[in-house]
Computed example of a mutant assay.
Amino acid sequence: MPTTTADVIARVRTELGDLGAGFLKSFDGGHDSYETGVRNIDGSSVSVRILSGGVSTPVDPELVMLDLRTGLLSLAEPVPVGDKLLVSGTAYAMFSDAEITRFVQTAARQHCHGQTLQTRYREETTGFIRILRVAKTLSNLPEVEIDAVAILATIEALWTMLTDASSDTDISTAEGTHLPRGQRFDQIMRMIDLLTDRYKKLCQQLNVGLYRIEQGTLRRVSYMTGRYIPVFAAREYDEYGPPIRQLPDRDIPDQDESGIPSPVWGGFGY
């Protein structure tokens, strides 16, 4: 069963303890905009109804505009005076779905960077054995790695909370009251360190993600041309098909950017 973003989001919300809570708000009629007092609302769970004479009538969603982040509700027409506006749904204390989705996507890109999934198959038309290599993404992520991605996404969320907590300062009053607001920063930082160690251990045990063991190939330089000898990926003994050229990264911190060619023979450069 393929992994979905919703599955990882649910795991991240469990890690953060941001599971959401239902709300029901009632407002008097006579206005076309209302402040619900609820933030980070789940848009798919929102229900807007008008209560008139004991009868509840749903409002057309096309006539309702709700800011899921701030909870500001606007209607195309004012609610009749004497009626009640009922707003219900689910809201989260820390992050909206859009924010958690961004954390999950960032974690998936980092965790899957440079990794592929390989499948061995026989080609029907020729009978040759080939290996299909596809980039690892969240959609084809093995189930055993879901926890690692969820932990990494949780770390991303905690870094956002840490940035907000960095502006909190301790408060001391003349009456002797002391509020150590800086403890919130320290607690979040300790949790980030613990989750980072947890993620690192999972990656090392499964040899996946950012802390996997990577193997490289030493590259040779031709004495005749001074150019790198091409490197090709190793293949199975029964794998048929063209060789796969590898292009390792080259660090060039002292690159000459003048554009002047280097003379090698007869005053000509290349």
Rank of each mutant, 00 (worst) to 15 (best):
I129K: 08
I131H: 08
I131Q: 06
L132T: 09
R133K: 10
R133Q: 10
R133M: 00
T137R: 13
T137L: 09
N140T: 06
I146W: 04
A150E: 07
L152M: 12
L152T: 09
T154C: 00
T154K: 03
T154M: 05
I155V: 10
E156S: 08
A157G: 01
T160Q: 12
T160Y: 03
M161G: 08
A165W: 02
S167G: 04
S167I: 01
D168M: 01
T169S: 06
I171M: 10
S172G: 07
S172R: 06
T173K: 03
E175T: 15
E175H: 05
E175C: 04
G176D: 01
L179H: 14
L179V: 15
L179G: 11
G182F: 02
F185S: 04
D186A: 11
I188P: 00
I188F: 01
M189E: 15
R190A: 15
D193G: 12
L194A: 15
L194P: 03
T196V: 09
T196P: 02
T196W: 06
L202N: 09
L202V: 09
C203N: 13
Q204M: 12
Q205S: 11
Q205R: 11
N207M: 06
V208W: 06
G209R: 12
G209S: 12
L210V: 08
L210P: 07
Y211S: 07
I213F: 04
Q215V: 14
G216S: 10
R220V: 09
M224A: 07
M224R: 05
Y228A: 13
I229P: 02
V231H: 07
F232L: 08
A233L: 05
A234P: 01
A234C: 02
R235I: 14
Y237E: 08
P242G: 04
P243T: 04
I244T: 13
I244E: 09
Q246R: 14
L247E: 11
D254E: 14
Q255E: 08
D256S: 12
